[in-house]
């Protein structure tokens, strides 16, 4: 029975990682942009939520609603002004620029909010738990997982059912021909990054509610997110969820054997999957 519990906890943890990864997956899938600042953007959004909560005294969920459009604007501007210039066949410019961005965000947050660790207060719900068959799970982890599924479902609908989603795929396939259809690649990319930042805001809520955070924790979150995206396969959103779950389950299983092995087993699961499927579990047929 203890195994069932461990695996359930792992799956739920995977939801958190998938949430960290969903925005990354969207951007990576559409413009092959490796955003090394993604983790720091999650932390930035967490501070934004916290700031709104403290200043306006509203509930964190309301704060998310206020922070999301701001993060959309940040993402849109970032893409329009900076990231767009790095796109191309060479992977070095996006890697270096987003790495620089990561350092800028971390240190700007350090200046603005100090290195003290923070937490987004959610009240009684933080410790509530529900019985899920034989196992008891925390309400927050369950909500996290549900949000991950919902976010990925919504992104999939957007991607495959809307005209904007068609434009995303068309620009990703062939930006030149897409222009002949009246699509402006730069503005489509900016919209995609904006949407990714809305997802980042949702991820930030759970990041800040579930554990303490400080300005420097972004890169550690980023690495799980990348693992989830790569395991899932480029551009596959459900694959990203699967990837998150694999990392999450591997971590809780490893952690149940020896707490010090928790993070390590997640990384090893990633390496093993990649050793067998170098392009991830659900790669696109063409590339």
């Amino acid at each position: 029975m203890i195994w069932v519990d461990t695996i359930v906890q792992g799956v739920l943890l995977g939801g958190l990682y998938a949430l960290f990864a969903a925005g990354l997956s969207l951007v990576f899938g559409i413009m092959r942009l490796v955003n090394l600042a993604h983790g720091d953007l999650i932390v930035l959004a967490a501070y934004l939520i916290l700031f709104v909560v403290t200043v306006l005294g509203v509930h964190p969920l309301v704060a998310v609603l206020l922070a999301a459009p701001m993060m959309f604007a940040i993402g849109w501007g970032l893409q329009r002004l900076i990231l767009t210039r790095t796109l191309g066949d060479d992977i070095l410019p996006p890697l270096l620029v987003t790495f620089g961005l990561s350092i800028v965000i971390q240190n700007a947050l350090l200046e603005g909010f100090t290195a003290d660790s923070q937490r987004i207060p959610m009240g009684a719900i933080e410790t509530a738990s529900v019985a899920l068959g034989p196992v008891s799970v925390g309400l927050i982890p369950l909500l996290t997982f549900a949000s991950a599924v919902l976010v990925i479902f919504a992104l999939n609908q957007l991607f495959y059912r809307t005209s904007l989603g068609r434009a995303f795929r068309a620009v990703s396939d062939d930006p030149t021909t897409a222009q002949l259809m009246g699509i402006r690649p730069a503005s489509v990319f900016a919209t995609a990054t904006g949407i990714a930042m809305v997802v980042v805001t949702i991820a930030a809520l759970y990041l800040g509610v579930r554990s303490n955070f400080d300005p420097t924790i972004g890169p550690a979150r980023l690495i799980y997110a990348f693992e989830a995206v790569i395991i899932g396969g480029l551009g596959s959103l459900w694959g990203t969820l699967a990837g998150g779950i694999i990392i999450g389950v591997a971590q809780t299983l490893g952690g149940s054997i020896n707490p010090e092995w928790q993070i390590l087993s997640g990384h090893i699961a990633f390496l093993v999957v990649l050793l067998i499927w170098p392009r991830g579990l659900f790669p696109r047929a063409f590339d």
Partner: peptide
């Protein structure tokens, strides 16, 4: 200047790359 140092380093890195 503490973290300003890294902040400026990051900005310079981005500017050079772009």
């Amino acid at each position: 200047y503490g973290s300003w140092y890294l902040l400026i380093l990051g900005v310079i890195g981005i500017a050079v790359m772009l």
